[in-house]
């Protein structure tokens, strides 16, 4: 059963995500099997035209010379896309953040660097404003011995445990000045089995800042569940949009049919 949500008009957002490797959009299954989906500028413009509420650009380029390509691609996207653009992947310092904002990003997503140096979140929020600091959390379910659900932060594409509790971490990041949480379930990412709703709900209930649910979308019902059951303020998806299974307007119409406020 879905319940009618009252949000006083603020729409739940649909955010297509571009995972970009060396200037090409790719999407892996559980971060391993990578398929080529095309040119990021072209794809971002397509989503802009389709009525996406934001676009997320996740740089998964490993090589350091690939970073120049990323900055150039972000510049091109920003020139042609008039919706908010979040850039993540490999952001390690205040200088990296400034580079991406100057290239045209509206928000920057910090992941591993926040774990190594939480002060980076405070410092960058003070410098650039909370509105552009997104903290990305990659969570994996690691139940307690007594079977209580618990989620821990993992790094390196879900391979390395950190011992940090995902919910407590989200609260701390909000306190340090993060403006938004981008929550990815590493158990679900690329599986198309739907969001991990337990951790989504736990974090949306725990923080005052907006939460973007990510990882696992395979159907339009998953997007609906992320909002109605997970409590997310925005839903992020990649492959269902890239490979043309669904368009953004189809996803929005479906969410609207299920009582969710969307921008049509």
């Amino acid at each position: 059963m879905t319940q009618r949500l009252s949000t006083m008009g603020l729409a739940k957002r649909i955010i297509p995500c571009l995972d970009v490797d060396n200037g090409r959009v790719v999407k892996g299954v559980n971060f391993v099997d990578i398929r080529d989906a095309g040119d990021p500028v072209e794809i971002a413009m397509r989503y802009n035209d389709q009525g996406a509420d934001e676009v997320c650009f996740l740089d998964i380029t490993a090589s350091s010379d690939g970073r120049e390509t990323t900055v150039h691609t972000v510049e091109q996207i920003a020139e042609h896309v008039f919706i908010p653009l979040t850039v993540g992947g490999g952001i390690r310092s205040v200088d990296d953040i400034r580079t991406m904002l100057n290239a045209g990003a509206d928000k920057v997503s910090i992941n591993t660097a926040a774990i190594h140096n939480p002060e980076l979140v405070r410092e960058s929020a003070l410098r650039f404003g909370s509105q552009c600091i997104v903290v990305a959390i990659d969570a994996k379910r690691v139940d307690d011995v007594d079977g209580q659900p618990r989620w821990e932060i993992f790094t390196h594409g879900g391979r390395k445990p950190t011992g940090i509790d995902a919910v407590a971490w989200a609260v701390r990041m909000a306190e340090l000045g993060a403006g938004e949480i981008l929550l990815t379930s590493m158990d679900r990412d690329g599986t198309r089995n739907g969001f991990e709703l337990g951790v989504t709900r736990a974090i949306t209930d725990a923080v005052e800042i907006p939460v973007i649910a990510s990882g696992g979308v395979g159907t339009l019902d998953h997007l609906v569940d992320g909002v109605t059951r997970g409590g997310a303020d925005a839903v992020l998806a990649a492959s269902i949009f890239h490979f043309g299974e669904f368009t953004v307007p189809q996803a929005k119409a479906y969410m609207a049919e299920h009582g969710i406020e969307v921008r049509l």
Partner: peptide, 12 residues
């Protein structure tokens, strides 16, 4: 119903 702050997103 609780509203998140910042007010972030598309509003009328």
């Amino acid at each position: 119903q609780r509203l998140k702050v910042p007010h972030m997103g598309w509003n009328e």
